[in-house]
Nucleic acid binder design. Structure first.
Length: 607
DNA sequence: CCGTCGCTAGTTCATGCAAT
DNA sequence: ATTGCATGAACTAGCGACGG
């Protein structure tokens, strides 16, 4: 109906009182006036329970009708451009390079804002630890620290028995820790600023400004599920035990009563899932000892290796070190001889194994997204190996700017360029050591050839500029006065020859040539041959202004096009092709990294 | 001949979103 | 609040080319 113009639709977003935005699609008859729509949307905002910010986007504020998604809360940014720019094939090469180019031609601020709509970028900017196992480790270690440092927290049930209530993580952890454990979904300048100061990083989440607290959805479902995900993993490896209250006379454990918390617990036995916060355990015990199984060897039944104490922070750190090794270092795990008997891991074995065996779970380095790397690539010359690091001053200012635009740490950006350059050097060295006519070598060759061609082009352009100057001074010397059309025509022929002759040694010869031409022009003028006049006027028409020669602008550097400077008034002599033209005739520069033969099927699949 | 590397497709996982 | 769905990302295994 929309296509046939019977109805119109648009999307907008309303901020719910609880913080998150809700996208709504509004359909209406084309006869509805804009004012009515505006009123309606405003009403819609108010209709939702006690909105803090009624409507983010009003109808009159330029809304894109139809399918395009109007991204609220941000200047009209090319969201769909980013989406296209992000599309990449299996190798990370963009499938829509034109979208990438278009995006990167915008202002730095726009590029930054646009990239910050990508989840991985914004969450890492705020310090999110993307590896799940490392996140669980952080949760574990931070909690142990809290038992020592803030034993009086309302949400710590018992320091002796190491029991904590889940609400601790929505109240008494610092902002920086919260952001490390729970990914942020949208960019918030206030949050970014806060995280820059030590004071801000230490601020407990319960003390955050209200709007920030709400934007981070501290304490709401999403946060709880994210945290419970981590607890599920910790339970799976035996670091924590979920608890439930009990009336039993012989509870699993008992502690001194504190605040309104219960003092007797049993092990939580119901099945639960991190997604449903109602049925999930709220009380958790941090064990004093945990087993290590050889996870990298077997997914279904990893062999028990040993128990390790995790009472103190130091012990826990040692535990995580060993755990990491047996999870990702298969060789190490295989070299271990296990005791004949041992407990099997408890909890949901498959889920635990899945998370913990994955390498990315343990990756601590910053994760550059493809779009960030595309941006970095713009500052890395594949043919010459040039990066900002090779700039005279080390490129400090450029690097900082780049880091800001892509919202990545400066060290990461610097390291990326260092590695890119090192790879380039390595490639060149290998190619020189043993040049071989293989595919790999070809790519290198092409890269070097492109570099050489580039140098040639520049050299030619410079030479040409010099030649141009020589010509100017020569003519100036022999004929300082403005020239008439016919004279210009005669001189023009010689100029073409001069420009193409290349050598600078035989100035005498050219002087003679020019003088003779000038003389010819003079006698021709004097005899007023009708024919030659006719010829001259037709030929010279393009530059009928006398004196154009002496006023010609100097050729600009870098462009090797022959038409700069005085316009060659005569087409009689086809000038030899310039280097640039010759190169252009060979077609576009070959890409070092091919657009290669992908199977038809694969291609279709991606489209 | 065997090991390594790069390419590719299929599968699984994480996560936000929308419907209930 | 809960649950199912859709989607992009990541992992893995298989294959072939290449090089020692």
């Amino acid at each position: 109906m929309e296509e046939r113009g019977k109805i119109k639709t648009f999307q907008t977003a309303i901020r719910l009182p609880t913080g998150p935005q809700k996208h709504v699609r509004i359909m209406y008859l084309p006869t509805i006036a804009k004012e009515q729509l505006d009123t309606y949307v405003a009403e819609l905002g108010r209709g939702l329970p006690t909105p803090q910010q009624p409507v983010v986007k009003r109808v009159e504020e330029e809304i894109k009708y139809g399918r395009e998604l109007a991204e609220p809360n941000r200047r009209t940014l090319p969201l769909d451009l980013l989406q296209r720019a992000r599309l990449a094939d299996y190798q990370g090469n963009p499938t829509h390079p034109e979208a990438v180019d278009e995006l990167f031609q915008r202002e730095d601020q726009d590029i930054r804002d646009t990239l910050l709509t990508e989840r991985s970028i914004v969450s890492q900017l705020h310090g999110f630890i993307s590896g799940k196992a490392l996140r669980a480790r952080e949760l574990h270690l931070y909690t142990l620290r809290s038992f020592e440092e803030q034993p009086n927290s309302f949400h710590i049930v018992s320091v002796e028995e190491r029991i904590i209530h889940l609400s601790f993580y929505s109240n008494d952890i610092p902002l920086a820790v919260f952001c490390a454990l729970v990914s942020t979904l949208t960019h918030d300048e206030q949050l970014t600023q806060l995280l820059l100061s030590e004071e801000g990083r230490r601020m407990l989440v319960k003390n955050l400004p209200l709007d920030l607290y709400s934007n981070l959805s501290v304490g709401r479902t999403r946060t709880r599920s994210r945290l419970l995900d981590l607890f599920e993993l910790l339970q799976g490896i035996g670091v924590v035990t979920p608890l439930q209250l009990t009336e039993s006379a012989t509870p699993f454990l008992r502690c001194t009563p504190k605040n309104e918390h219960p003092s007797a617990f049993d092990v939580f036995t119901e099945t639960w899932s991190p997604q449903s916060s109602i049925n999930s355990p709220a009380y958790w015990r941090f064990n004093t000892e945990a087993p290590i199984h050889l996870w990298s060897i077997s997914e279904d039944s990893p062999a028990f290796w040993k128990n390790m104490p995790i009472r103190t922070l130091e012990e826990a750190m040692a535990y995580w070190e060993d755990l990491c090794k047996v999870c990702i270092d298969r060789e190490f795990a295989a070299s271990i001889t296990c005791p004949p008997t041992g407990m099997r891991p408890q909890g949901s074995l498959e889920a635990t194994a899945r998370s913990i065996r994955r390498k990315s779970s343990w990756k601590s380095s910053y994760d550059l997204s493809p779009i960030q790397q595309h941006y970095l690539n713009r500052f890395f010359n594949q043919s010459t190996g040039q990066t900002p690091l090779q700039d005279q001053d080390g490129g400090a200012a450029t690097l900082e700017r780049i880091a800001w635009v892509i919202s990545a740490p400066l060290t990461v950006v610097t390291e990326w360029f260092r590695e890119s350059h090192a790879r380039y050097v390595h490639r060149i060295e290998r190619a020189e050591r043993k040049p071989r006519p293989k595919k790999a070598a070809k790519a290198e060759k092409a890269a070097r050839r492109a570099a050489e061609e580039q140098q040639l082009v520049e050299k030619a352009a410079n030479a040409r500029a010099q030649r141009e100057q020589d010509w100017q001074s020569l003519v100036q010397r022999l004929h300082p006065d403005p020239m008439d059309d016919m004279t210009a025509a005669r001189i023009g022929r010689i100029r073409n020859l001069f420009m193409d002759s290349g050598t600078r040694a035989d100035n005498k010869k050219w002087e003679r040539e020019v003088s003779r031409a000038l003389q010819d022009a003079k006698t021709a003028e004097e005899t007023r041959l009708v024919t030659s006049q006719k010829k001259a006027s037709t030929v010279v028409r393009p530059s009928s202004r006398p004196g154009v020669l002496s006023k010609a602008a100097p050729p600009s550097k870098g462009t090797a096009l022959p038409a700069r400077g005085p316009p060659p008034p005569v087409a009689a002599i086809a000038p030899g092709k310039s280097v640039a033209e010759l190169i252009a005739d060979q077609g576009p520069v070959r890409h070092q990294k091919k657009a290669k033969k992908r199977s038809k099927k694969a291609k279709e699949g991606k489209l």
